[in-house]
Design a protein around this nucleic acid. Structure first.
Length: 418
RNA sequence: GUGGGCGUAGCUCAAUUGGCAGAGCACUGGACUGUGGCUCCGGGGGUUGUGGGUUCAAGCCCCAUCGCCCACCCCA
């Protein structure tokens, strides 16, 4: 049999037991971020196309060639969101959330869409879990958010992650840096890779994180953004590092790190995973975006946020995905016994005990075999004899112990099991 | 959008020079009339991704196409 339909390229079903991992990740995020005062926000997955043009930047690849954009029946250009921040900022402005006491803190989780060639750690429909904090410019907020992110990752049990950060300046000092970079690379423009020659025109900062070895050599001795930062940006970044030092949060200052989205200002950061992730090894990334809210028509509002890739987090937790078996399996022989089994199961299930039934009128042996296969902890057998005597046999499949007990005793015995 | 690799059972893979499409695992039933795991026996499952071509004969050779994977670009 061939399936008549298959999933689209670059979209994937998340199946059990992996969905358990996803549940764990979201629950952990809710728990950890809740302690930091973050509340969940659920924006729509589609928006006016213009929202993303303005926020992410028309020159970025995301907008230029990766958006799922279509015209709806009202002749409006609509896009599936390629990232989360734009929608949250739109909601913040639209609902006047600046009138609530600052800071306003939100987290979200859901699917994002980018029309890219899939590869390891990258899908066309992918899931991000992120957080945004509005209204406070203090570098302590940057530190707090980064510490929260690391606490979240730590709580998941992830090891061997590295936090990198940098400051890319503000609208005052970044243009000057771009020019200094251009001046530096101009004499050797011809030696750069074709991509970097393009970057030279479009976004010279990107030359700094090119992976081509030759480009890496050419950029040795290039100007560093840290040398070009204005006084305010420099103080902001220094204060952030001091907070992290005090809190014992390990980080790597990466003066070459650049972020892809146009709206970032000052602090940018990225958490990288191990080599097992392939080329797409960033599990989370974010930064400050102090201009975006006013750009969207709101009051001047400093803000900072991050997003983490669910598939990438789940990938790092691979191997932990297991579905535990039911606490109890009730095997029954005959219709009357099946009814009795269903009644007992229903009572136990009301109390939260996971119970499976041996439907199908199979032999006792096959029912027990199935109980074993699905990893049941215990089995209760109900047959003609048990119906007659009112005493059910039970057996622990893990240690082999067994016994007999009346209906109510059985109920009591397993009502605490999960 | 660019480059490379791979498509045979649910999964992992065999199939000699082009010569009857197979194994293990998994699923399912039995041996054992009502006691799981171990063992043994049986069963279901395939248009060899798809469409053309060469040939007496194609899983294998040729062309095209689709899909998956990996990398580039970009990005979580």
């Amino acid at each position: 049999m061939k399936p008549r339909f298959t999933a689209l390229k670059g979209v994937a079903d998340v199946l059990p037991p992996e969905t358990g991992l996803w549940r764990k990740i979201e629950n952990t995020a809710c728990l950890v971020m809740g302690a930091y005062g973050y509340e969940e926000i659920r924006p729509p997955v589609m928006e006016q196309t213009g929202l993303f043009l303005r926020s992410i930047g028309g020159s970025s690849d995301i907008v230029a060639k990766e958006m799922y954009t279509f015209t709806d029946k009202g002749e409006r250009s609509v896009s599936l969101r390629p990232e989360g921040t734009a929608s949250i900022v739109r909601a913040y402005v639209e609902h006047n959330l600046s009138s609530r006491p600052a800071p306003q803190k939100f987290f979200y989780s859901g699917p994002m869409f980018r029309y890219e060639r899939p590869q390891k750690g990258r899908q066309r429909q992918f899931y991000q879990l992120g957080a945004e904090c509005f209204g406070i410019a203090d570098p302590g907020v940057d530190a707090e958010m980064i510490i929260m992110l690391m606490a979240f990752l730590d709580r998941l049990g992830l090891k061997g992650l590295s936090l990198e950060l940098n400051s890319i300046g503000c609208k005052e000092c970044r243009p000057a840096f771009r020019e200094r970079l251009r001046e530096f690379f101009a004499p050797r423009l011809g030696e750069l890779c074709p991509d970097c020659q393009r970057r030279y025109e479009q976004n010279p900062l990107r030359i700094l994180d090119c992976k081509v070895e030759r480009c890496g050599e050419i950029r040795k001795g290039s100007p560093l953004i840290s040398e070009t930062l204005c006084q305010d940006c420099r103080e902001h970044f220094t204060a952030l590092l001091e907070f992290l030092d005090v809190m014992g949060t390990a980080y790597v200052f990466n003066p070459h790190m650049v972020r892809g989205l146009d709206y970032y200002t000052r602090t940018v950061f990225e958490v990288k995973g191990g080599a097992c992730m392939g080329a797409q090894n960033a599990v989370a990334a974010g930064g400050r975006y102090d201009l975006l809210v006013s750009e969207f028509g709101g009051p001047e509002t400093p803000a900072i946020g991050f997003a983490a890739g669910m598939e990438r987090l789940a990938g790092l937790l691979q191997g932990e995905a297991v579905t535990p078996g039911p606490a109890l399996f009730i095997a029954s022989l005959g219709k009357e016994a099946a009814v009795e089994a269903l009644k007992l199961a229903s009572r136990l299930r009301e109390g939260g005990t996971r119970v499976e039934l041996g439907w199908g009128g199979f032999s006792l042996k096959s029912q027990l075999r199935r109980a074993d296969k699905i990893g049941a902890g215990n089995v209760v057998i109900i047959g003609e004899d048990e119906l007659k005597s009112g005493s059910f046999k039970w057996k622990n499949l893990k240690d082999g112990s067994s016994g007999e007990a009346g209906r109510e005793d059985i109920f009591a015995q397993f009502s605490q099991a999960k």
